[in-house]
Design a protein around this nucleic acid. Structure first.
Lengths: 245, 245
DNA sequence: TAGGCGAACTTGTACAAACAAGCCAGAGCT
DNA sequence: AGCTCTGGCTTGTTTGTACAAGTTCGCCTA
């Protein structure tokens, strides 16, 4: 673990613990540098990390202030339903309802950087939290990873983790589109809600460290089961609004 | 504009223009430093900016790669419906349907850092895109900003901009919770959809540069009108999943 | 008392240097 | 052909320095 990560971690703990309340000022960079016997640049990297997490804000000339005190989860926990559920104290389970290969559509070819007509693997999964159906996942995997996905246990808890352990695949980057849709008849049946009831939809494309697209997925959460949370600032602006389709 | 912002801007333009395709490698830091006659640290700040936007990814030892090629909007455009709409080429309008003062509830007192029972301003707005009703906004403003809000034109296009011009108020930080809900009868009537149809809900709390909460809002978008988009990576992880409520 | 001014403090930007750690391709070997 | 290994390249981390730019607060003055 790098020095700046240690410092960030230490400060984060202090904030989460309540040593610095929301709205309070953080010590100056010079003071922190002295306290941790590090150069000012190193301290800046540490607080930049906290700023990116939305825990602290800063303005030139004024002390940094604490904006929030909740620990945000790691990328792995965002990406993997199972890992997220576990960290929140839930018991996650899931079932593969169907899985078959087919040629990719033109739009999928673009999204996954495939040749037109190349083969993909289409998987439908139902995911549960503490036994309750919560999420319908329709995932399209690029052909090159399909064999590894097909070898997975149909009731496998964490696909992300299994793929890492079996073939060393790491999900490194993701793009997410979030909107609301009405439940179709299949969605409704699987999630145990009425047709037309609201679902939170997350469409995502995930790529490896090398930038190679792995999967494209359409995930639909039962309303009320899951909320997405984002902190932003004039400096860091990850969340973007788009016109619908 | 800082040197590193110029460099970032230049690289961003090149990516958006297509000089570097998705999946292609960026020049090395040393080469960029030479090209721009800047120190390596300055170049690193520039590419860190692009990485935060999700345009490029990086791994130690290997050249940086291009992940996306779409320009993402600024914070102002995220926060202000009107500014976002304008940048996308839409015509935004809006109407205040009701506006009244009342004592704040205990939960609002916590969210807005108010004393229990302190006065707040409750505003209901309907927003349109090219004339079509798209968004119902239920906003609670902290008492100290209420007079300025009440002075606004009821059909004011951009609240954010007006508040900046009239009292110099800047929205600097925001926390957003995104989920899906069914339209209530009021929502349905205002948006012209059926009761129970899906809406994309964005609850947010916005604060000033000093970390002082200004407003807490419950915004409901008609399904299909707006999509939220986020890029993330193992390094930068702004988006977080939460259990419902 | 209200306002203006300035000094001290704090964060932002930029440069330079050095070493660590990981990636990759080509040389060389089996 | 296929494998290993090594050297060069590239990004990551840390330190130190200097100056720019914005904030804060006390002091002085009108």
């Amino acid at each position: 673990m790098a020095r700046y990560e240690q410092i960030a971690s230490d400060l984060r703990d202090a904030i989460v613990r309540g040593d610095y309340r929301i709205g309070a000022q953080l010590p100056s960079e010079a003071e922190l540098a002295l306290r941790y016997s590090a150069a000012r640049g190193t301290v800046r990297q540490a607080v930049a990390l906290l700023a990116a997490e939305g825990l602290v804000g800063s303005r030139q000339g004024a002390r940094r202030i604490v904006l929030g005190s909740e620990r945000s989860q790691s990328f792995a926990e965002l990406h993997s339903f199972a890992q997220w559920a576990r960290s929140m104290g839930y018991r996650a389970s899931g079932t593969v309802l169907s899985s078959h290969r087919r040629p990719c559509s033109p739009s999928e070819a673009v999204r996954l950087s495939l040749e037109p007509g190349e083969e993909v693997l289409d998987v439908l999964r139902l995911r549960r939290l503490d036994g309750d159906p919560v999420l319908v996942e329709r995932t399209v995997y690029a052909g090159w990873i399909a064999p590894a996905v097909e070898r997975l246990d149909p009731d496998c808890e964490s696909v992300t983790q299994e793929l890492y352990e079996s073939v060393g695949l790491v999900f490194a980057y993701g793009e997410h589109l979030i909107d609301a849709v009405a439940a179709g008849s299949e969605d409704a049946r699987l999630l145990g809600v009425r047709r037309g009831s609201p679902l939170l939809r997350q469409r995502r494309v995930t790529t490896t460290q090398e930038g190679r697209p792995v999967e494209s997925s359409d995930d639909r959460y039962r309303a009320g089961s899951v909320t997405f949370s984002i902190r932003n600032s004039t400096a860091a602006n990850p969340l973007v609004r788009r016109a619908g389709d």
